[in-house]
Design a protein around this nucleic acid. Structure first.
Lengths: 191, 191
DNA sequence: AACCTTATAGGACAATCGTCCTAAAAGAGA
DNA sequence: TCTCTTTTAGGACGATTGTCCTATAAGGTT
């Protein structure tokens, strides 16, 4: 098998496991078991665990960018795009209730570990932040676009955290509705 | 030294370390080093690491209850009490920016570990939830008290998560102001 | 077939983990 | 002071961790 293919499988398996079990709690053996390769062979593709983490973060950045690009390519209005963001909570509801938000939980864990990749993981948040700010700017809210973006990001994070803690489906729906209503308010506000 | 005293020191040190480094990333050696007792002596006070976690959660529940009781004893109005809750973000700002919310991060970590103490940690959230619901009920919002409580809890969690991710002091202030404004809206709403 | 690069398996390694045992020190009561 | 309980220190234990080495297998090219 080509080296590239195996590498991708490792990154994919690590991505899932880091999300489900956390970075620290996932061992080389776990990943090797998931990909069904020997633990020793690992070293050929990645020298350290940190290198895998870097690759996972890079993949998540790439996937997220692709998702955001897709939303723009669909010819939707900025408001509809923001609604897409809000509704990730519903699209990924079962995963979020089980494991939380992939971005928030990874960032939080790396912060506690004092891990060097902390800032790289933070770029995942920044990606959403800047994309949302662009959409709010397109809505004519250039002046406070970043603040609106951070506020929405914050609401979404909180909903994900509590969804994970309480496993409450109705709560997620309720919060999504509230965020959509808030968005309507933002749009209709005179400036 | 009495056994009770040492035990309390262990729980206190473990509490701090679990908050700063996470549960899994904190070893017996870390705690023993902080309390300045031998690693072996640990076993006399706690048989397993899980037992320490249980004790830490119990202490946090006790401290939180004491804090909430204090707010009620101060003779404040329900609205003022809720404001106290919102302003925890400012009171503990530096810690939250460095380590996140003690409740949210612990709950999230235990969820990923699939740890049996998960539900115990969840009681920390429930404690805030029910207390907030009581305050909203006292404000005459008995019908949707729990939903309002969950919403505020969610907003607070999101703000803590992003404060930790971005280390942005102005953002915290801004979100606290928004929550206070939201509370004003809840109070003045006709029902 | 022969050859050379690429990829793999298996295990060695030092360190650290949570757990547990045991002998000695400290303290209390007679 | 003698005795008995409580508390402590130190280390052994098996397992697991991330890292790294080496011999072998696989694949492609000539």
């Amino acid at each position: 098998m080509s080296s590239q293919k195996t590498r991708e499988q490792i990154v994919e398996a690590a991505d899932q496991l880091f999300y489900r079990q956390g970075y620290e709690h996932t061992s080389f053996s776990d990943i090797a078991g998931a990909v069904k390769i020997s633990r020793g062979n690992f070293y050929y593709h990645f020298k350290t665990k940190d290198e895998i983490l870097d690759a996972v973060i890079a993949q998540r950045l790439k996937n997220t960018r692709a998702m955001l690009d897709q939303w723009e390519a669909d010819g939707a209005t900025p408001a509809e795009r923001i609604t897409c963001f809000i509704k990730i909570l519903i699209t990924n509801q079962s995963k979020i209730m089980a494991y939380g938000c992939p971005v928030g939980t990874l960032t939080g864990e790396l912060a506690k570990l004092g891990h060097p990749a902390q800032s790289d993981a933070g770029r995942l948040f920044t990606l959403f932040r800047e994309w949302l700010a662009e959409q709010f700017t397109a809505l004519g809210r250039k002046a406070d676009a970043d603040q609106l973006a951070m506020h929405l990001l914050s609401r979404s994070q909180g909903a994900a955290t509590l969804a994970n803690a309480f496993h409450d489906e109705a709560f997620v729906t309720s919060e999504v509705d509230k965020m959509c209503a808030w968005l309507d308010g933002v749009i209709s506000t005179e400036h």
